[in-house]
Structure formats: C-alpha cells, structure tokens
C-alpha cells in the first residue's frame, strides 16, 4: 500500500492537470461541473465523519451561488463573494443546528431536510433573486487583468477549489479535532465520557462543511454564468449520498470524488437516457449497496489490496 497509494495519486493528479490538452470542450465542461459536485460530496463525507448524514447541502449550495450572483451583479469582486456566501451559510447553519443538534438524530434529519427544501422554494419565490428564471449573465471572475473567461481557466480554478477543500479537510482529519470526530462516530457515549463535547465538535464539522458547500455554489455560478433555482434543488444535495456510497463510504475524501465523477460523467454519455438519469443513478446505488456494500473503493480495500500485500517480496513486516 505504501508504494501504491502515492502512485495512484500521482496518476490521478497528472490526468487532472493534463486533461485540457486532450479533452473536448464538452468533456472539460462536465469535468468542471464534477469539481462542484465533488465538493458537495466531500462535505457529505465530512458530515459522516461525525455520524451526521446531511440533507441540508442544497441550501448552502444555493446560498453560496446566489450570494455570488447577486453581489457580482452589484459589482462586488468574485473573490469577496466566496467568504460572503460562506459566512451567511455558516451563520444560518449555526442557528438551525443549535436547535437541532442537542435534540438527537431525528431532529437533525428533519431540520436538515426542511431547511434544504425551504431554501429551494425561497430562491424561486424572491423577485430580487430573479424568481424561477434565476439570475443570468454572471460575469467571469478576474484577478487584476487576468480573467477566468475560458473553459480551461475555469477548469483549473475548479481544480484549485477542490484541492483547497481537500487540504483543509485533511488538516482537520489529522488533528486532535479529527480524532475527536472519529471518536464521536465510533461511540458518542464513550467520546462524551472522555470529555469530548459531542454537540460542539459536531457543530464545528457542520459549519466547516457549510462554508465549503457555499464555496462550491459560488464556483458553480461563475462556471455556468447563472444561478437558477432548479439547480439548487433538494435532489442535488441528496445526490451526494450516492457519491459517497458509490465511491466508498470509508474513504471520506476519495470516495465522494470518485462517486461524483461517475454519477456526473456516465449519464452525460448516455444521451438517449437524459430523462432516465435519476433512475439510472438510483439503480447504480441499489446495485452497489447490494453487491459492493463498501463501494468501489471497498473493492480495492477488500479484494485487491490484500492480494498485493500477500505477495511474498512486498510483504510488510
């Protein structure tokens, strides 16, 4: 494993960086969209690190998206709209989950579901957010005179968003905070009895996730130059569950990314089946849960890795 993992990561990084050299513009556009969805999936995986399957993802995704669309309409720089959308999401998340977290799992499910459903209604109903038609004509972001106005540049920006997200999540996972999160997932009662403030650590996890979900929304809006309510629907958030379980739920970073890639790319190439897309995704999830309960990366963990490890010359000792 020690040699294989960096090799796989290097190949993935190489493909990701060189993609614009051989990808069609269409493929590149979908790859950029995948970056957004991967960020949503990563946030779902983050929540699962404290045993919380979030259903509220669409809400913050939309808040980030609309914050960017509205503020850029008023001439605010894209780079400032990211923290603005993030901050609004963090504040509302804090208010909502201050009520929900101390009340147990049922309250968490209900609150997180209701908030996502409510927001997708709100986005469409408010006239200053463009109603159900949304806000279109969102400009490309710029740094000084450099504009992110080509497909390639936007793609690399998306890649950067994903990399920054992973870096921040990794810092959490490998810190004392991350260990407390793991303890909470494993046994909330034991975690409490060794002094972990379960509600507070879960709250920190939720707020970090909300911020990066909003950032994904901001990016999505400059990618498509539009904020449209139907994009920020409840379903978009629920799809992240599929990402994690298709990819492999024990891998909170690689799992959602692989899952987002598969769920976004494969239906795009089944053009005839565009309307069947939700059904195809559902079928894939059911198939995976039945035959590969640990997801695609579970196949790697359970089938391939032990075989490689068992080969005599590479045996660990």
């Amino acid at each position: 494993m020690s040699k294989i993992k960096p090799a796989v990561l290097a190949v993935v990084a190489l493909v990701a960086i060189t993609l614009p050299l051989y990808a069609t513009p269409y493929m590149l556009q979908i790859a950029t969209t995948t970056a957004c969805f991967a960020m949503l999936g990563l946030a779902f995986g983050l929540g699962m690190r404290v045993g919380l399957p979030r259903l509220d993802i669409a809400a913050w995704w939309g808040v980030g998206g609309y914050a960017t669309a509205v503020l850029m309409e008023h001439g605010v720089s894209f780079w400032l709209t990211i923290p603005a959308g993030g901050l609004i999401s963090v504040i509302i998340s804090f208010l909502v989950f201050s009520l929900a977290l101390p009340r147990g799992m049922v309250a968490f499910f209900v609150f997180s579901m209701v908030i996502a459903m409510a927001f997708s209604q709100v986005f469409g109903s408010l006239s200053f957010l463009g109603g159900w038609g949304g806000i279109t004509g969102v400009p490309s972001p710029t740094i000084f005179s450099f504009a992110f106005d080509t497909q390639n540049r936007i793609y690399y920006l998306g890649l950067l968003f994903v990399v920054v997200t992973i870096a921040v999540y990794l810092a959490f996972y490998h810190s004392r905070i991350g260990r407390a999160w793991d303890a909470i997932t494993s046994s909330p009662r034991l975690a409490g009895s060794v002094g972990v403030d379960v509600v507070r650590y879960r709250m920190v996890n939720i707020l970090v996730g909300s911020f990066f979900i909003a950032a994904a929304g901001s990016f999505y809006v400059i990618h498509y130059h539009a904020a449209i309510p139907s994009v920020f629907s409840f379903t978009a958030g629920v799809n992240t569950i599929a990402y994690l379980f298709i990819g492999g739920f024990t891998h909170s970073l690689a799992g959602p990314i692989l899952g987002a890639f598969i769920v976004t790319f494969i239906p795009e190439y089944l053009q005839f089946a565009q309307t069947l897309r939700p059904i195809i995704i559902a079928a894939v999830v059911i198939f995976i849960l039945m035959f590969l309960p640990a997801g695609l990366l579970g196949v790697w963990d359970n089938k391939i890795k032990p075989r490689l490890a068992a080969r005599p010359p590479e045996r660990r000792e």
Binding site: R179, A180, A183, S186, S187, R189, L190, V194, G195, V196
Partner: peptide
C-alpha cells in the same frame, strides 16, 4: 464494553487523553 472498535488500542487510550 464501549470502545472505539476500529481504532487501535493505542488510539483508544490516546483518545482518553483528549482533555
């Protein structure tokens, strides 16, 4: 028996040092 079942013995005890 409440334990952090998937973590190693060492990681379990280190978790006790959380405070």
């Amino acid at each position: 028996t409440f334990l952090f079942a998937h973590a190693t013995v060492l990681a379990n005890v280190m978790m006790g040092c959380h405070i």
